[in-house]
Computed example of a mutant assay.
Amino acid sequence: MTTTRVAVPRKGRPLEAVLERLASRTGTAELADDIISTLRYEKAITKGNQRADDDVYHRLAEYSTLSDPRRPEYTLLRDDRDGMPRRVVFDSVTVPTDHGDVQLIGREEPFRALRTHEFALGFDSADLVLEEVVQLRDDPLTSIGEINDRIDPLDTDVRVVTGLGDTVYHTLLALPGVIDAQNRPLNREFVAEYEGELCISPRYERLVEAVLGTAALDGITFTYPDNGNEEEADIAATGIGVYLTVTGSTARDHDLELGERLFPSETVLLENASEGDDTTRRVADLFTAPEETALQSV
């Protein structure tokens, strides 16, 4: 049987979501847990929250099993933390399935690897798709299901197939005084009536424009958190902003109130239709939950 190569992130929540979904379909929970726990341990070392007896090269040699592709391989990357330490990240693993072997291959930017036709299938954050290719319109983009309609077919052959449900949200946050000034719910309509500064992460500027809708941004000036500051602290200093939230506890610590959840930050399965075939379409089905409907036929 053939081997289908799938591009995946090298670390973090999106990779964990892919491993967990594949494990639930192939009975490889032990393998997924091993990779996830290894990468979390290495992240803790990089952040200074964990100490290791061996240096990073010895740990890398211990983790990787080059002679057996069904055991995970890892590699080293420079982390962007102080001192730029070398960090162990995921490289590849091959998982047997009913549709042939599926080889997960780590990429720094899986979405871009699909755009350049290196892969037929891959996973990345929906955020990156919004930042890279969706068209900006007056009306807001509100769901994963609307993304494909905003992609210019002349720009890329890549489309979103489905989300994996590992969702946190880009959420409106504001101080009570700012909300009280309009005496209305903190939602997109609030922003449409608001004039002044709105604090966002600079890497999400295009995303925020897409999910608020360009018509709502008249009279608004974006500001950005200072390097090293908590985003919630700078949003509080501005009075209103957009940030990724899970529980909102840190926002509340800064007296911010949570408003509308604007858009899900979720790992999505992507397909380059021009590179796909019957095998890749069957492999894509492994990652679609029985109750889910793919955003397009793959």
Rank of each mutant, 00 (worst) to 15 (best):
E257N: 11
D277I: 05
D101K: 02
P225N: 01
E132A: 05
N187S: 09
D149I: 14
S249H: 08
V56C: 03
A17R: 00
R159T: 09
R78L: 12
R137N: 06
N272V: 04
A120E: 09
R203I: 14
V268H: 11
R281V: 01
D226C: 06
A7I: 12
V93T: 03
M1W: 08
T97H: 05
F123T: 10
I220T: 04
E62V: 14
R81I: 14
S143F: 08
A237F: 07
V208P: 08
L270F: 08
E20V: 11
L217D: 01
F123M: 07
I144L: 11
L31E: 02
S297F: 10
A29S: 11
I35V: 15
D55T: 06
N148S: 14
G228E: 07
S265G: 10
R81Y: 13
V88H: 09
T142Q: 09
E132C: 03
E292G: 07
H254S: 06
F190L: 08
E108H: 12
L244Y: 08
L244N: 12
L186D: 11
L269A: 13
S265R: 10
I235P: 00
D79V: 10
T3K: 09
E108L: 14
R78K: 10
T97A: 12
L198Q: 02
D234C: 03
R206D: 05
T238I: 00
R107P: 03
R87C: 13
R71Q: 13
D166Q: 06
I45D: 01
L22N: 04
R252I: 11
G48H: 00
Y74R: 05
G145M: 11
P14L: 07
V208N: 12
P96I: 00
E30D: 11
E291R: 10
D166R: 08
L212V: 04
P225T: 02
D80E: 11
A113T: 14
D127Y: 12
E230N: 13
L207H: 13
G122R: 03
H170F: 15
L256W: 03
L121F: 07
I36G: 01
A215H: 04
A251T: 07
L114S: 03
A17G: 08
T65G: 13
T28M: 11
L164I: 10
G165Y: 03
T214L: 15
G276W: 08
Q135H: 08
I36H: 00
L173S: 02
R115V: 13
V93H: 06
L76P: 01
L141P: 00
C199I: 02
A61Q: 13
Y41T: 14
S24V: 02
T97R: 10
L217R: 02
E109L: 15
T26F: 01
E189K: 04
F222W: 07
L22R: 06
L258V: 11
R87K: 14
L104P: 04
L15S: 02
P202A: 00
P290N: 09
